[in-house]
């Protein structure tokens, strides 16, 4: 489902545009809501195209997200005067400035808003994994077994997609659309390469994201490059190490 994430990152743009028109600024909650709704709508469209029109999933994804993105860019240009959002933000993200952005006061401590929303996302994520984790795991690795166990994989899948949409939306401002995909896929891939069982996968994935954030930060600092890309590149370096490790251990399916 990795590329559903890619599709979602592109499809949230019209939601953001709409949210901006309603809310008036980059910090408005409408933005997040609009983006999440747009992402969800795109996923539903993909499912519709896949089931009703019997399109293959990759073709359905291709049509759906390009259409959504096109609507978003058009909206950006048509309402450019009212929207202070430049298209670069969609692509480059703004990790460098997110810390300086809106801050919330928390008992005499000033905390960047992005930190709060990120922390919130973590809490939601942990809860979601606790509730749905087993279903998702079984559903991912053995859908038939999942159905036998009575896990309606339809509902669990919908929750997973919804959660992905929300994650992407909250990541959007920080790292930009296209790199959000990397943050979705790299840690999990690293985990799969290194660990044998699901808890191990999750731990390695978490470790990977922390390590790539750290190394990426230093890379961006010293080389003066875009922070989000630096983190993706660092993440890839770690991924290559994991890849080498998995090859040494015996290659495919080890």
């Amino acid at each position: 489902m990795a590329l559903a994430g890619d599709a979602i990152t592109h499809s949230v743009l019209p939601g953001i545009v709409a949210g901006f028109l309603l809310g008036g600024s980059l910090d408005s909650p409408w933005l997040l809501l609009g983006a999440a709704l747009a992402g969800l709508a795109c996923v539903l469209l993909i499912e519709f195209l896949h089931h009703t029109l019997a399109l293959r999933e990759d073709a359905a994804t291709g049509i759906a997200f390009t259409t959504f993105f096109a609507v978003g860019v058009l909206g950006l240009r048509l309402f450019a005067s009212k929207i202070d959002l430049d298209p670069d933000c969609v692509i480059f993200g703004s990790l460098e400035t997110v810390v300086h952005g809106a801050r919330l006061s928390f008992r005499s401590m000033q905390v960047p808003a992005a930190f709060v929303s990120g922390a919130g996302a973590v809490v939601v994520g942990v809860l979601a994994v606790m509730v749905f984790g087993r279903r998702w795991t079984i559903g991912a690795f053995d859908p038939l077994h999942a159905r036998c166990l009575g896990f309606e994989d339809g509902r669990a899948r919908a929750v997973l997609l919804g959660w992905t949409a929300m994650m992407v939306t909250s990541a959007f401002q920080s790292v930009g659309a296209i790199l959000a995909v990397a943050l979705l896929v790299q840690p999990g891939a690293c985990g799969l390469l290194v660990a044998r069982r699901v808890p191990g996968v999750l731990i390695v994935a978490g470790l990977h994201s922390v390590l790539s954030a750290l190394c990426g930060f230093y890379l961006a600092w010293f080389a003066a490059i875009n922070a989000a890309s630096a983190m993706v590149l660092a993440g890839f370096a770690w991924l290559c190490i994991a890849w080498g490790y998995s090859l040494l251990r015996g290659g495919r399916g080890a």
Binding site: G118, V122, S170, S209, V210, A213
Partner: peptide
């Protein structure tokens, strides 16, 4: 989870 690490750092 990923963003938190990022912002925390």
């Amino acid at each position: 989870m990923r963003w938190m690490a990022t912002v925390l750092v």
